[in-house]
């Protein structure tokens, strides 16, 4: 039992299940899934579908955080890729043609990849602190997106584009397949190659890794490229959903939600050990919370209060001090030794 509780995914998974149970109790239709024209609908399906952009961004963020970094520019990259894609579609002769849309999406993703490479260059090659390096693009990116859309919100009507966010494949939302593809690809690469452990090594001790012959720069660079690319895809899904490129609203606060998802999942912000499964759970927690608040009739503008509460509760649960107090309540002598120990760590 204690082994289960001690597992790093226990608390994230427990929170998610608790949240789902809570929702089901309050509104039984939460669990209900209906089939219409061979397509599945319901609150749970919505959560799976709507979480796609956040999922992609959070996955990239996980890898970046594992390398001891952070990518603040993801929201701006989403705005840029959405702006590029929709501007191309808008300017094309036939916005409804699949090939046009595919080309536009490829270009949008490609631009996002380049932006990721730019971040990677600043961090891995010039050795600039990640938070500062990505701040540059976070500031400038939206400006660039606004210039691309000429300061307007570009709207388009294009069926293939809409399919990305609202279409169905094998009875399930297409966006879900994008998420699953990304999760599978990243997990496979992490498990089946040595990239996972080498990334962790770089995140924990970059210099030691370099001396051991690990291509630290390459790995760090790659993490930002991945993050940028995934953000680019997320930006396309987002614009497909609102059928517009909104340089200001696209990916607003997403870097914060993505970081929150990563932390909720149990990956530490100081880098090193990471868990993809944890991040996936973290994303679902956030999306379920959003859905809950929508149901409760909380204006979406006010929902940040609840996220603040969640963040605070989660960080308190993870905090060593709270652990110590909790142990102090349950056991006498043992806890005293432990507190002496952690004081020693502080002093060491």
């Amino acid at each position: 039992m204690t082994k289960v509780v001690k597992h790093r995914l226990f608390w994230p998974a427990f929170s998610l299940v608790a949240l789902i149970v809570l929702n089901t109790v309050v509104r039984p239709q939460f669990m209900k899934i209906t089939v219409r024209d061979g397509e599945l609908y319901g609150a749970l399906i919505d959560i799976l579908r709507n979480s796609a952009p956040l999922m992609l961004v959070a996955l990239g963020m996980t890898i970046v955080i594992a390398t001891r970094g952070i990518d603040l520019s993801v929201g701006a990259v989403m705005a840029v890729s959405g702006a590029v894609t929709l501007t191309i579609i808008d300017g094309a002769e036939d916005p409804g043609s699949t090939s046009t849309v595919l080309v536009a999406m490829a270009v949008g993703t490609g631009v996002a990849l380049l932006l990721g490479a730019w971040n990677g260059f600043l961090v891995a090659v010039l050795d600039i602190q990640p938070i500062v390096a990505t701040l540059v693009l976070m500031l400038a990116g939206r400006g660039v997106a606004l210039l691309i859309t000429d300061g307007f919100i570009t709207t388009v009507n294009s069926e293939p584009l809409e399919y990305v966010s609202t279409g169905y494949l094998f009875a399930l939302p297409f966006a879900l397949f994008i998420s699953v593809a990304a999760i599978t690809a990243i997990s496979l690469v992490e498990r089946r190659t040595a990239l996972g452990v080498l990334t962790e090594a770089v995140g924990i001790n970059p210099e030691a890794s370099r001396l051991a012959g690990v291509r630290s720069r390459g790995i760090t660079f790659g993490a930002y490229v991945l993050s940028g690319t995934l953000a680019g895809v997320a930006g396309i899904i987002y614009s497909s959903n609102i059928r517009a490129a909104d340089a200001n609203a696209a990916g607003e606060f997403i870097e914060l939600y993505a970081i929150l998802a990563v932390v909720l999942g149990g990956t530490s912000l100081v880098g090193g050990k990471f868990t993809v499964a944890g991040t996936v759970i973290g994303v679902f927690i956030i999306q379920t919370l959003k859905s809950t608040m929508l149901f409760l009739g909380v204006p979406s503008a006010q929902s940040p209060v609840f996220f603040a509460a969640v963040v605070i509760i989660v960080v308190l649960i993870q905090s060593p001090r709270v652990h110590r107090i909790a142990r102090g309540l349950t056991g006498g002598m043992r806890s005293r030794n432990l507190s002496a120990h952690s004081d020693a760590e502080v002093a060491a």
Binding site: I131, I259, V305, F306, A308, V311
Partner: peptide, 17 residues
């Protein structure tokens, strides 16, 4: 022991909401 980034992020959400 919350990282400043996260703690002030909570503050950001709280105040905005």
């Amino acid at each position: 022991d919350v990282q400043p980034f996260i703690a002030s992020l909570a503050g950001l959400f709280l105040a905005r909401g």
